[in-house]
Computed example of a mutant assay.
Amino acid sequence: MRFDKIIKSTFCLVALCGSLFGASNGTHWGYTGHDGAENWGNLAPEYSTCKDGKNQSPINISKGVTITTSKLEDIYFNYKSSTSDIVNNGHTIQVNVKEGSSIKVDGIEFHLKQLHFHTPSENQIDGKSFPLEAHFVHISKKGEIAVIALMFENGKENQTIKEIWSRMPKTAGEKECYCSTNEVLNSFLPKNRAYYRFTGSLTTPPCSEGVRWLVLKHYATISEAQTKEFLEVMHHENNRPIQDINARKVLLNSPLSF
């Protein structure tokens, strides 16, 4: 995940902003060559968690590590604000969101800051990789992070993606105005919002752990041409490889098998 200049107002986030949100003076990293994911942990001391962490993301959500439970509460979605702009930060296409949208998990309100995309998907479900994955990034007042992940499978053209792609900057470092309604955010969400939950990390340096991952069980669709268009803008795949799950378990709040 890429978090560029998401929040500045709370004192407890000052230290976090310099690393988590990709400050321009940080150590350069990428997805290919010497700066690729396999070397992130060696690029800088502050990136050491990328190689030493035990709760890293993404993961393969397999039957063997998944526990279905009725005790896992539904996610309360309150997406009511509009988007503000679209940024090509060189690692992904990021849609920034105006204040006012949130989710509630564990009785905590997490405020939606942005969403961005990876191709192919970073997380997998039962060994299946998807052509695109969207991450909806939320932060609580205490600086805790919760990420909603939505998978896109091959199918019919996605109209919301079509609108976003039509405005995405083609050059790294560019930003375009994108003042949509809240319908854009809500249009992504499936009607059935069952989800998998696990504790993980950022999927980009510094790979900080303690992130609440909430992976929606049901998918959206995207056409092969739309995936290709995104890949051509990025110039390369932008997903971190699957990480060891170690002792973690994944919780599923749906009684239905997958």
Rank of each mutant, 00 (worst) to 15 (best):
Phe258Glu: 06
Asn238Tyr: 07
Val147Cys: 06
Arg197Pro: 00
Glu109Pro: 00
Phe3Thr: 14
Asp244Gln: 06
Asn186Ile: 13
Tyr195Ser: 01
Glu122Gln: 15
His34Leu: 09
Glu237Val: 12
Ile222Ala: 08
Tyr195Leu: 03
Phe188His: 09
Lys98Ser: 08
Ile6Phe: 13
Asn55Gly: 03
Gly90Glu: 12
Glu176Ala: 15
Lys228His: 08
Asn96Asp: 14
Gly100Phe: 08
Ser166Met: 06
Ile125Tyr: 01
Thr83Val: 10
Ile164Glu: 03
Gln124Trp: 11
Gly107His: 03
Thr181Gln: 08
Gly90Ser: 12
Tyr47Ser: 06
Leu252Thr: 02
Lys249Gly: 03
Thr32Gly: 00
Glu144Trp: 06
Leu16Arg: 15
Tyr47Arg: 11
Thr92Lys: 15
Ala172Tyr: 09
Asn55Ile: 03
Phe117Thr: 12
Phe21Val: 09
Arg248Glu: 02
Ala23Tyr: 13
Glu229Pro: 01
Lys175Tyr: 01
Ser82Pro: 00
Ala172Arg: 13
Val184Ala: 06
Leu20Gly: 08
Tyr219Val: 10
Thr66Trp: 03
Phe136Trp: 07
Val87Arg: 15
Glu209Lys: 04
Lys8Thr: 05
Ser19Phe: 07
Cys50Pro: 01
Gln159Asn: 14
Lys8Ser: 05
Thr32Pro: 00
Phe3Val: 07
His135Val: 10
Tyr31Ala: 07
Tyr79Trp: 15
Ile139Glu: 04
Asp85Glu: 14
Ser223Ile: 01
Val233Gln: 10
Val87Asn: 13
Tyr79Leu: 15
Ser140Cys: 05
Ser166Phe: 01
Glu209Met: 11
